[in-house]
Nucleic acid binder design. Structure first.
Lengths: 232, 232
DNA sequence: CATATCAAGTGATCTAATCACTTATTCCCA
DNA sequence: TGGGAATAAGTGATTAGATCACTTGATATG
């Protein structure tokens, strides 16, 4: 959807800076090299480097103190949330991410059930149809459709703040994570669980919608945990 | 805590740009003036302007398309969430923001009750003590302490993603909002409700902690609604 | 009519120098 | 000897204008 334009120099710089901080073992509060040194090391000029720094600053990854230096921000060891420019997540954070979704999304499913109206309900059905058509075939499309189901449900709930929060959380579930997020190696499974949730929403059964969404996410988390730490 | 350094030129630029977009009636997808024109209008040089643009880009407020132009992003009409550089929220969004907190924070209170341990419990108590000392006196301090209580509770829950989400949401409850967030014009009220929540957490009574947190936030929202739309 | 070419407009980057601020040291005076 | 003021080094902030790279719509060409 995005990423229509070729990655620019400063795009790459932003990621190299992040890498420098993370792989350099820097902790929040640590001081980083000066702008002069960084621009030399990365072989770019000051203004270009600064653009990358400003982006990192905007997300809380670093902090620029005039006359003092560049410092690692608190957000660096947390999840870098809603930055379209650097969707990155460590595997270990996936479990916590699912934990967050388990708290937030079930109530949203309940709210969606209460608001269930013609138009938005149609959107939700459309998303599931799309997933159904890719049940055997394009992996990336199927994954995208599955994620869209969660986004659409959050949207139906009618609270724009929560909608944005869920969007942010799902942002890190990029295509590269589709394997680990696939339940039980069964492509059909995700779809059927989503379908069950839709039915509850359509029936305006808030309690059931909430419970099915929760069960669904808990199951996903369980699978992920097993894959990260195989039993035995 | 932050904001130790004087606002820089590019800080101001970022806000002026936001103002230009918002008050200019621009919608997502609209094209903004070119970098050359913007730098002239604001009387700054290209690199300085670009730093401001990169910050706005990082939060999704705008989009820079090489060779094409600068476009308004989708995030511009939503809440600008976790950007330490521009904490801004429209009054009407407060109600929705509270709605989001009502969904997220009560379960966190329950999780905090389950994790209740010595050290973090002490932190929570310390926060309430600080609030107590400012019950009559420094308004800003009292407000900050009240917000810290919610942050600390979220932290106790033990999920860093949710902790970050709550931090982001509370970020917009800056000092300038302390009046509207004050329950019933009674400075003591907030403190006492927080105290009740703490007691439930301390007693490891998850259900009660959750319910008290929910009741507390619902009450705050109700008050805010009444202030925004006085009955009659 | 469709395709290829081109030119204007726009963002991206470079260059290198100067300004403004912080910090720790030093020095002086009490 | 202690405390505070001047100071110098280091660092981020900003300036200036030119050049490169890309997009897009108009124009020309088959």
């Amino acid at each position: 959807m995005s990423e229509v334009t070729r990655p620019t120099l400063s795009d790459a710089l932003t990621e190299r800076m992040l890498e420098l901080i993370r792989k350099g073992g820097h902790r929040p509060g640590d001081r980083l090299p000066s702008t002069r040194e960084l621009s030399q090391r990365f072989a770019v000029t000051t203004p270009t480097l600064r653009e990358a720094l400003r982006r990192l600053e905007a997300t809380g990854a670093i902090e620029l103190r005039h006359g003092s230096g560049i410092y690692v921000g608190a957000a660096i060891e947390r999840l870098v949330l809603p930055n379209p420019n650097m969707r990155e997540v460590h595997a270990a954070q996936l479990v916590e991410l699912l934990g967050a979704r388990i708290v937030i999304e079930p109530p949203l499913a309940a709210m969606a059930a209460q608001n269930a109206e013609g138009e938005e309900l149609a959107v939700l059905k459309g998303v599931l149809d799309r997933a159904c058509r890719h049940l055997r075939g394009d992996d990336a499309e199927l994954h995208e459709a599955n994620m869209s189901f969660h986004r659409a449900t959050a949207r139906m709930a009618g609270n724009s703040v929560l909608h944005e929060v869920v969007d942010s959380l799902l942002l890190v579930h990029g295509p590269e994570q589709r394997e680990i997020l696939q339940i039980f190696d069964d492509r059909r499974r995700d779809y059927e669980e989503h379908l069950a949730i839709l039915e509850a929403i359509e029936a305006r059964d808030a309690a059931q919608a909430e419970e099915r969404m929760r069960a669904h996410l808990v199951e996903v988390r369980t699978v992920i945990e097993h894959r990260l730490h195989p039993p035995g």
